[in-house]
Amino acid sequence: MAIQWFPGHMHLTQKAIAERVKDTDVVIELLDARLPASSANPMLSQLTSSRPTLKVLNKQDLADPARTAQWLAHFNAQPATRAIGLDASQSTPAQQLVKACHELAPNRGGLAKPMRVLICGIPNVGKSTLINTLTGSKKAKTGDEAGITKLEQRITLTDDFYLYDTPGMLWPRIIVAKSGYNLAASGAIGRNAFDDEEVALELLAYLKTHYPAAVATRFKLDMTAHDIAAMKDEDLLEAIARKRGAILGKGRVNLQKASEIVMHEFRAGNFGRITLETPEEFAQWLAAGQQLDAERQMKKAARGNKRGGAGGAPEADVPSESS
């Protein structure tokens, strides 16, 4: 199942960012350190390509430190880009943002040329928490769900440093299937846009391959890491359901409840420090997604040509494939 979620207010956010970036010196894109590329908005890259960018891997305290180092090196190798890791709840590290912005735009500063920074990111990535940390007050609403911030806010950090906060924004078509699952698992996508069990199974498939000991430890499963890695995804979810008491009548397991438990444990960081992708993995996922999308577009174009027919007479209607 392809996961997509693009509420109406995100379209307005897209237009607002396109207008705001004209008067912006630096763009901060807040990423989830547990899924850095999946949480990087390709639409945002297009909208802000003319401005230097600071990529902030937020929630790094929940992410695999070795993989965070890989991602920082990956982003820092890109032109006009800096990347830092951050835990938005920590006040002292948060001040790194101000310093990094001045390094990216050294000619800005002072009352005559105040620094104008646009901060963007997907829903539920921690922007509001970070802003409240930076300002030392609760200027931005926070919550563990997608879509809390709905309007742009201007925040004055110092007399010559203006921060513009925008609502979290995804993109209309997520062509990397794995990204959709990772975003859903992290809480970036509204609950009505995906099937809990399907997302939980995808999450477990990755965890049992890369972090099997963490799964065994968290759910107190009497199995070795090798046993966990060898299990079928469905069997592992059932074992978790029984261990956590997610049982229906006559001993049947409640897979819906078990799926919710698995996602909650990941979002809360209860598995330990986990990262769901590496730069190399994402490059493979992206290439596969782009190829599949190209094939999909070719089929759609072929259908359009066939419907037109000779002399413009359309043939029998054929259901169009989602793109």
Rank of each mutant, 00 (worst) to 15 (best):
Q96C: 06
D235K: 15
T13L: 04
L57H: 10
N132H: 01
V21S: 06
T48Y: 03
Q153V: 08
M1V: 13
K55G: 06
R273H: 07
R116I: 07
A105D: 07
M43F: 08
E103G: 06
F271W: 02
G126A: 10
G312C: 02
A140C: 14
G110Q: 10
M169N: 04
M43R: 09
M115T: 08
P167D: 04
Y164T: 14
K300H: 12
M223K: 14
E234I: 05
G180D: 05
L163R: 03
N76R: 14
N270V: 00
Q297R: 15
K22A: 08
P7F: 09
V117C: 10
A225E: 13
N182R: 15
V98E: 14
I119L: 15
A214S: 15
S49W: 01
D23W: 03
P172I: 07
A83G: 00
A268T: 14
A77R: 11
T278L: 11
D317L: 12
D317M: 10
R267A: 02
K127R: 03
I174R: 02
D317G: 02
P79R: 06
A213Y: 01
R34K: 14
L104F: 07
A100E: 14
R303F: 10
A205P: 06
G143W: 07
T166A: 11
G109D: 05
G168S: 04
N124G: 05
R296E: 10
P93W: 10
